[in-house]
């Protein structure tokens, strides 16, 4: 049941053209078996290039979280494969960091901001000075300077998610996976956190795969948007976002290009699965 086959492996459109960090090929996930089997993910293939920012959007209940768990090695796909830097993923890979939607449960309430960020670094053989420098830089880049000795409960929700982002950045992964990270913060905080992501992306040059249900957010952040269909999930379309790299919450969102892309993706998602 857990055997994975490479039968579904098919070359992606970009094979050989780009330096792919993450390749998802013919990914399928079925829950249960026999008559009660539910196909969560039908057939999903796409890739993420080095230093690219890719957003994944889809109708609600389309298995975005399942997809992300398969990509992060927390769940084994029924068929197909995920490759990270060419190596098949069969458990949580070392060069990957995951930011959860539920920051309040993903941060350890008994550890300070510094303690939380330092926790995954214990596995990396860092000198104390290197570790402190990484923590300092990560904390600075998410705008939490001066809060390293605070406990999560002393921070607002948006600040707690900044801690989770800083923890992922200090880990210095090749790819950062984010599961609807801003779904439970208010609109203003959300806009601030989106801009934090654009800033840290520039600063760290990290590759980001960002799952969201918010189409505006996807277009605003991404270089490319992977649009998923309803269950059984497959890739409906991959939309390239040709907006300038410097983005602004007001001026970018009022451009004709942004409005057009946003409307295009809305229509694609609303359309019933073929």
């Amino acid at each position: 049941m857990n055997t994975r086959t490479d039968d579904n492996h098919r070359p992606t459109a970009t094979d050989g053209k780009r330096d792919s960090v993450l390749e998802v090929s013919g990914l399928q996930k079925t829950y249960g078996s026999g008559a009660r089997a539910t196909v969560a993910i039908g057939d999903v293939s796409f890739d993420v290039a080095k230093e690219e920012f890719v957003c994944v959007v889809g109708p609600s209940g389309c298995g975005k979280t399942t997809l992300l768990k398969c990509m992060s090695g927390l769940m084994t796909p029924t068929a197909g494969q995920v490759r990270l830097a060419g190596t098949p993923v069969d458990g949580p890979p070392e060069q990957l960091a995951l930011v959860f939607q539920d920051y309040s449960r993903s941060l350890m309430p008994w550890l300070t901001v510094r303690g939380n960020i330092a926790l995954p670094l214990r596995r990396r053989r860092l000198s104390a000075a290197d570790r402190d420098e990484r923590i300092r830089e990560a904390v600075d880049s998410v705008g939490l300077t001066g809060f390293t000795d605070h406990y999560p409960f002393q921070l607002s929700g948006g600040m707690q998610q900044r801690v989770a982002i800083a923890r992922a950045l200090a880990y210095q992964p090749d790819i950062l996976l984010m599961d609807e990270p801003f779904a439970s913060v208010d609109a203003q905080t959300r806009a601030d956190l989106e801009d934090v992501m654009l800033a840290v992306r520039r600063r760290y040059g990290v590759t980001i795969l960002f799952v969201t249900h918010d189409i505006d957010e996807a277009v605003y952040l991404a270089d490319r948007v992977v649009v998923l269909t309803q269950r059984p999930t497959s890739v409906h379309e991959v939309v390239t976002v040709d907006l300038p790299a410097d983005r602004d919450q007001v001026t970018t969102k009022e451009t004709a290009e942004f409005t057009h892309l946003r409307a295009h993706i809305y229509r694609a998602i609303r359309r019933p699965a073929a």
Partner: peptide
């Protein structure tokens, strides 16, 4: 899951 994903 956080512990697992960071390979603690």
């Amino acid at each position: 899951e956080t512990a697992r994903s960071y390979r603690l």
